[in-house]
Nucleic acid binder design. Sequence first.
DNA 1: CCACAGGACGGCT
DNA 2: AGCCGTCCTGTG
Length: 291
Amino acid sequence: MNKLERMENDIIVKDFKHFDPVHTFECGQCFRWKRTGDNTWFGVVKDLAVNLEWDGKNLIFHDTREEDFLRIWYPYFDLDRDYGEIKSRLQKDDPVMKEAIAFGHGIRLLRQEFQETVISFLISQNNGIPRIRKIIESLAQHFGEPINCGIPDIKTFPTCKRLAGTSLDELKIIRAGYRDKYIQKAAQQICSGEVNMDILKNGDITQSRAEMKKLFGVGDKVADCVLLFSGIRYDIFPVDRWVRRVMAELYLGHEASNEEVNAFAAEKFGALAGFAQQYLFYYAREKKIGM
DNA sequence: CCACAGGACGGCT
DNA sequence: AGCCGTCCTGTG
C-alpha cells in the first residue's frame, strides 16, 4: 500500500506509482472526470465529489475525510493492486505491449459502481466520447440527487431505482436517442434482480457475458466493458473498432472477427487480459493506429 | 445531401 | 449461425 499523509483537510497518496490522471481518466473507462486546471481534476463517485491534484508524484484528495477516503476512493482507484507486477508480466517477451505500457503507464482500472457503469455504456454505443459525457451529465442533472459539496449543481449518477420509474417521455430530455428505452428497461431489470452478480463474478466468461446480456440493450461490447470497468472481472477483453484495428496491425497481421480477437487475447493475456486491453486501446486511440 | 461515430435489436435467410 | 436494415443525435 502507498503511504498516506494528512495535511489539514487533504489526504495525500505519497509517491504514487503507476498513475497519471490523463491516462486513467482518458482511456475510455469513465466519463465524469473533468480537468479543471493543469494539475487539477474534479470528479463525482457515488455520493461524493472531489477535487484532485496531481503534481507528478503525489495524488492529493482535497477536503476529504479519512472515512470517505477508505470507503470510496481507496477501492475506486484500485489502490491495493500491484501494477508493477502486472506490467512486468504483460511486457515479458512482448515488445508491442512494452511500448503500449510505456505510453500509457499511468492507467489504472477504476472500480466503478455497477449500475452507473451499465447505464453509461448503454449510452456509449454508437457514440463518441464528447457526446457520451454530455448525455451522462444531463442524466445526472435531471435525475440525480444533489451533492452537498460547496459547488452548485453537482449531482449523483441516478440510481436504477430512479431511472426505472422514469417515463420514456421524461428521458427524452437527455437526448440519448433510441438508447433511452435501453436505459429504462435495463434499469427496471436490474431493480427486479434479473442479473445474478454471483454468476458475473464466478461464472466462466461465456456465462458471465450471457448474464449481462439479459439486460435490454446490452450486447457483447457493453457486457465486457461493464464487467471490466466495474471491477467484477479482469480476464475480459472488450473489443471495439479501435481494439480490432490495433490487434490487426500489431499482433495478428490481418483483419479479424471479434471472436478471433477474444480467443487470441484469452490465450496470450489470460487473467490479465483486461489490463492489456486498456494499454492497447489507449495506445491505439492516441496514436491513431489503423487510421 | 450523405457518411459515420468506441453497437444492438429483430427479422430474415 | 450469419447477414442486414434500422435506430436518435451530432459532427464533418
